[in-house]
Amino acid sequence: MKYQGINLENVKLSNRSSILLLLNNNGAMSRKDIAETVGLTAASVTLICSELMEEGIIVELGEAAEEKRAGRKKILVDINPEYRNVLCIAVESDTTYIAVTDMKGNMLCNCSLPTDKHTKPEQFFRNVTDECQRLFWKNNIVREKLLGAAVTIPGSVDRKRGISLNTYSIWTESIPVADLIKKDLGLQVVVENNLKAYAQTEVYFGLGRTVSNLFILKWGPGVGASIIIDGKIYQGSNKMAGEIGHMTAVKDGRSCNCGRKGCLEAYVSTKAIADDVQAELDRTDENADKLERDENIEKIIDNKIDMLAFNLKNSISILDSKNVVLIGYMFEIPGYMERFIKAYKEYDPLVSDDFFVKTDLRVNREHTEGLAVFLNEAFLTA
């Protein structure tokens, strides 16, 4: 067998990624501590850090605060939040959110526009890029300082080609999202499923930094999940792993946007709840956070909660995740998360009190989860 040798360039990129990921997870560290943690020589770490500092990606922060000791003091380095900015575009079923962040996830400015399902996708994304241009102009965002853009969108995505394959509730055709954005803004563009993007955020900025096996459940206008195994997002053979909303909950049941029947989302999404309220009680409630005030409506909600809890329990029985992270509009309604956990415990009374986690990440409210997707693409993978 012919000896292939080692690709030194790939090794170098991998070492850079390891250092950047470590700084992202731990915050400022000295070169010596970095070397001990990632298993590189002090000389290698010094060389890589020098290159990263020359590029402006990391900065020195000064001496570490530590007890008095003999010898050279530790000088801390950290990721430079002002190195570049990232454009985050989050397409949701009703609203599309636009934000610009720094490298640490701090939002610099934002805006939004309705997700117009009746407009052709090409025209819609032209409207999005026009809105981005206005946002840049109003907030003095210099195009040259933008590292790139990340677009998060529901449904199946071909990340390699930057194509949205099927958004189910918005459009059904394939859309070359990356090409459309790049054409108007001239930026590198990464496209990812919205739940997998959130999972990436949890890996880099949240609980995923310390827990390697997680299940993320989102409940709102849509129902979805993402699976993190050994610190990596599990994609599945068709990139559709975690589609809990499209598990069959009722045989030959309601038609779903995905084209199948009986899917969980067709019964427990906010639209499904509103439809059931209108059908069963002959009334319309536009705001889901007001539903619990009516005793009859609470019974409908309890049925939805029970159905969601039942399907989650079956999923967790297979995956054996360490924690379940709860996100989404419905879990933000006072009392709903507690009711859901209570329903789940009826199927698994042995579950620990700390099994369910409500994330502290603000990206779910600011819609900046695309940042983690872009960092993963640009810096943190070799």
Score class of each variant (00 low, 15 high):
Ala178Phe: 00
Ala372Pro: 04
Leu23Ala: 07
Leu76Tyr: 14
Gly245Tyr: 00
Gly39Gln: 04
Ser321Ala: 15
Ile228Arg: 02
Lys345Asp: 10
Lys345Ser: 13
Cys258Glu: 06
Tyr344Pro: 13
Ile48Glu: 13
Asp78Trp: 06
Tyr234Asn: 00
Ser169His: 10
Ile153Gly: 06
Lys104Gly: 14
Val128Gln: 01
Ser93Arg: 11
Val211Cys: 13
Asp320Thr: 03
Ile227Val: 11
Ala288Asn: 09
Asn110Gln: 11
Ala274Pro: 04
Ser18Leu: 14
Ser93Glu: 15
Ala372Cys: 10
Arg31Tyr: 14
Ser14His: 11
Glu292Val: 02
Cys109Pro: 04
Ile233Cys: 05
Tyr168Gln: 04
Asn376Pro: 01
Pro221Phe: 03
Leu23Glu: 09
Leu147Thr: 07
Asn24Asp: 05
Met307Lys: 14
Lys313Arg: 09
Glu66Tyr: 05
Gly56Glu: 09
Ala241Val: 00
Arg16Lys: 15
Asp306Pro: 00
Asp102Pro: 09
Phe356Lys: 05
Ile57Arg: 10
Arg260Trp: 10
Asn314Thr: 10
Gly39His: 09
Phe205His: 14
Lys68Trp: 10
Met1Arg: 09
Thr248Gln: 12
Met103Trp: 02
Ala288Thr: 12
Ile153Pro: 03
Ala288Cys: 14
Arg260His: 13
Val190Phe: 04
Glu67Val: 08
Ile301Tyr: 01
Leu165Gln: 13
Asn238Gln: 13
Ile216Lys: 07
Met337Leu: 11
Ile153Met: 08
Gln188Ala: 13
Thr96Ala: 05
Arg31Gln: 15
Ile244Met: 01
Gly224Cys: 01
Lys12Leu: 14
Thr172Pro: 00
Met330Thr: 03
Asp158Phe: 04
Val38Asn: 10
Leu195Trp: 02
Leu185Thr: 06
Lys299Arg: 09
Glu9Thr: 15
Glu369Lys: 04
Val324Glu: 07
Gly253Arg: 04
Gly39Asn: 08
Gly236Val: 02
Arg69Gln: 15
Leu217Lys: 13
Leu264Gly: 08
Asn166Ser: 02
Ile6Met: 11
Val223Met: 05
Val86Ala: 10
Gly186Thr: 12
Ile170Lys: 03
Lys117Tyr: 00
Asp230Gln: 11
Asn15Phe: 07
Glu63Met: 08
Leu326Arg: 02
Ala225Asp: 01
Cys258Lys: 05
Lys2Ile: 12
Gly259Glu: 13
His246Cys: 03
Gln123Pro: 02
Thr37Gly: 09
Lys160Asp: 12
Lys2His: 09
Ala249Pro: 05
Gly162Tyr: 09
Lys145Asn: 15
Asp94Pro: 00
Glu192Thr: 02
Leu312Ile: 03
Leu135Glu: 09
Gly62Trp: 06
Gly220Trp: 06
Pro114Asp: 00
Glu295Leu: 06
Asn303Gln: 12
Asp282Ser: 11
Asp348Leu: 06
Ile244Val: 01
Ala279Trp: 06
Ile170Glu: 01
His246Asn: 06
Asn287Ile: 02
Cys111Leu: 03
Gln4Trp: 03
Gly262Thr: 10
Ile141Met: 13
Lys183Cys: 09
Gln278Trp: 00
Asp360Trp: 01
Gln133Ala: 14
Leu113Asn: 08
Leu40Arg: 12
Tyr267Asn: 10
Asn10Lys: 14
Thr37Ser: 15
Asn110Val: 00
Gly335Gln: 06
Asn257Pro: 09
Phe310Asn: 11
Ser174Glu: 15
Thr248Ser: 05
Lys2Leu: 11
Ala272Cys: 08
Val100Asn: 13
Thr368His: 01
Ile227Gln: 01
Leu135Cys: 06
Thr96Gln: 11
Asp184Val: 04
Arg254Gln: 14
